[in-house]
């Protein structure tokens, strides 16, 4: 008896779709059989297996991206019930129904829920979010990092370039060139590293150009939205401090 009751339970989804990047979006409704411990990804897999809408007509399977399924890769970012987040950690039992799923349209939408997050990777290149150690000979071990510093730097290293903070930011849009919160926090991470610190000025200068750190308007939506709980606004304020200092040092020729 209990099994029959469970089998009849369905989960209602309203999914925003589009065929091509330039096509106009439309919504489709789905009633998906409920299973315990479902998440949004397993519901999308169910649609993939049986692409039938609520009204019983067939449709094309909904396209999405996902990899790790444990909230560390950042691939399955989408807007679920109005909030940008990872679909893999969005548990059906904890969501209000109908569950509305949309692509993060701050980014170019490729198809359905698939977005192009290339601007995030370009941003990491622009701010040189790496530590240059390559050379023609062995440079030997670098300076040691204080354990207390390592502990907060580790939190920043959890960034998975998922793009949720850019989607939440009111200053990341078509009219602004703001680089977004994530790369600013990465500058703080690599500038905190004892070897990375040797190139700190290059990263700060990258953020002191058009679309850099000045684009932040302090709405602080980023820190409220980050799935990894990264203290993004602390990073932004710390880099504000560093860029301000750097500006005066440059002016004074120090």
């Amino acid at each position: 008896m209990a099994d029959t009751a469970t089998a009849k339970r369905t989960v209602k989804f309203i999914i925003t779709r589009r065929e091509r990047p330039d096509a106009s979006p439309y919504t489709e409704e789905f009633d998906i059989p409920y299973r315990p411990n479902m998440n949004v990804i397993s519901a999308l897999m169910e649609i993939q297996r049986n692409p039938v809408k609520s009204d019983g007509t067939k449709t094309t399977p909904v396209v999405w991206e996902s990899n790790c399924l444990e909230e560390v890769c950042g691939a399955c970012s989408m807007v679920i019930n109005g909030k940008p987040r990872q679909a893999c950690s969005a548990l059906i039992d904890k969501l209000e129904q109908p569950i509305r799923v949309e692509p993060m349209s701050t980014f170019p939408v490729v198809r359905d829920l698939v977005i192009n997050r290339e601007r995030m990777f370009q941003a990491l290149k622009r701010v040189k979010a790496w530590i240059p150690i390559d050379g023609t000979y062995d440079l030997g071990p670098g300076p040691r990092m204080a354990e207390t510093k390592r502990q907060w730097a580790y939190e920043l290293s959890k960034c998975m370039t998922c793009g949720v903070c850019l989607e939440a930011c009111p200053n990341v849009n078509d009219r602004s060139s703001f680089i977004g919160p994530a790369p600013i926090s990465q500058v703080r991470l690599f500038n905190a590293h004892p070897t990375g610190e040797m190139n700190a000025h290059e990263r700060l200068e990258a953020l002191m150009t058009d679309g850099g750190i000045e684009g932040c308007g302090n709405s602080q939506n980023c820190v409220r939205s980050c799935p990894k709980g990264i203290p993004l606004t602390t990073s932004i304020a710390a880099i504000n401090k560093d860029t301000t200092k750097h500006m005066f040092k440059r002016w004074l020729g120090m």
Binding site: P170, N173, R175, G217, N218, S219, N221
Partner: peptide, 19 residues
């Protein structure tokens, strides 16, 4: 002009202050 107002989606105190 270059800012969006998204207090509808992100109903947080600081976001209201931003708007």
């Amino acid at each position: 002009f270059t800012s969006d107002l998204n207090v509808g989606r992100f109903n947080y105190g600081r976001n209201w202050a931003f708007a």
